[in-house]
Simulated assay, not measured.
Amino acid sequence: MENRGIFQAIQQQRKQQWSPNTIPYTKLSDQEILIVGTGQIGQKLAQALTFFGVSPIGINTSGHEVAGFDKTFALSDLHACAKTADCVINILPLTEETTHLYDAAFFAQMKPSASFYNVGRGPSVDTTALAKALEKKQLAFAALDVFEEEPLPENDPLWLIENLLITPHISGHTPHFQKAFMAIFLTNLQQFLAKQELEKNEINLDKGY
Results as ranks from 00 to 15, higher is better:
P56I: 03
P56H: 10
P56Y: 10
P56E: 12
I57V: 10
I57A: 10
G58H: 01
I59P: 05
N60V: 09
N60M: 02
T61G: 09
T61L: 02
S62W: 00
S62A: 01
G63H: 01
H64T: 13
H64A: 07
E65A: 13
E65N: 07
V66S: 08
A67K: 14
G68A: 03
D70I: 01
K71D: 14
F73R: 14
A74T: 02
A74P: 01
A74I: 00
L75R: 11
S76I: 06
D77S: 13
D77Q: 12
L78F: 06
C81Q: 15
A82K: 14
A82H: 13
A85F: 04
D86K: 00
C87K: 14
V88E: 06
V88D: 06
I89V: 09
I89P: 04
N90Q: 03
I91V: 12
I91F: 05
I91D: 01
I91T: 14
P93A: 00
P93I: 02
P93R: 01
P93F: 03
T95N: 08
T95D: 12
E96H: 14
E96V: 06
E97W: 05
E97L: 13
T99D: 12
T99G: 09
L101S: 14
L101G: 13
Y102N: 12
Y102R: 07
D103E: 06
A104K: 06
A105F: 12
A105M: 10
A105L: 09
F107D: 14
A108L: 04
Q109T: 09
M110Y: 11
K111C: 05
K111I: 05
P112T: 05
S113F: 11
A114G: 12
A114H: 09
S115R: 15
Y117A: 05
Y117M: 09
N118H: 06
N118V: 07
N118A: 08
V119H: 03
V119C: 06
G120T: 07
G120H: 04
R121S: 13
G122D: 02
G122N: 07
G122I: 03
P123F: 11
P123Y: 12
S124W: 08
S124A: 14
V125A: 13
V125G: 10
V125R: 14
D126I: 12
D126K: 07
T127N: 10
T127Y: 08
T128H: 02
A129N: 05
A129R: 02
L130E: 15
L130Y: 13
A131T: 02
A131D: 11
L134G: 08
L134S: 12
E135A: 10
K136I: 00
K137A: 12
K137G: 05
K137H: 15
L139S: 09
L139M: 09
L139Q: 11
A140H: 15
F141K: 10
F141R: 12
A143S: 14
L144D: 08
D145W: 09
V146C: 05
V146D: 14
V146W: 10
F147P: 01
F147K: 01
F147S: 04
E148Q: 12
E149G: 07
E150C: 02
E150Y: 01
P151T: 00
P153T: 03
N155R: 03
P157C: 07
L158Y: 07
W159C: 00
W159Y: 09
W159S: 01
N163W: 09
L164D: 11
L165K: 11
I166W: 08
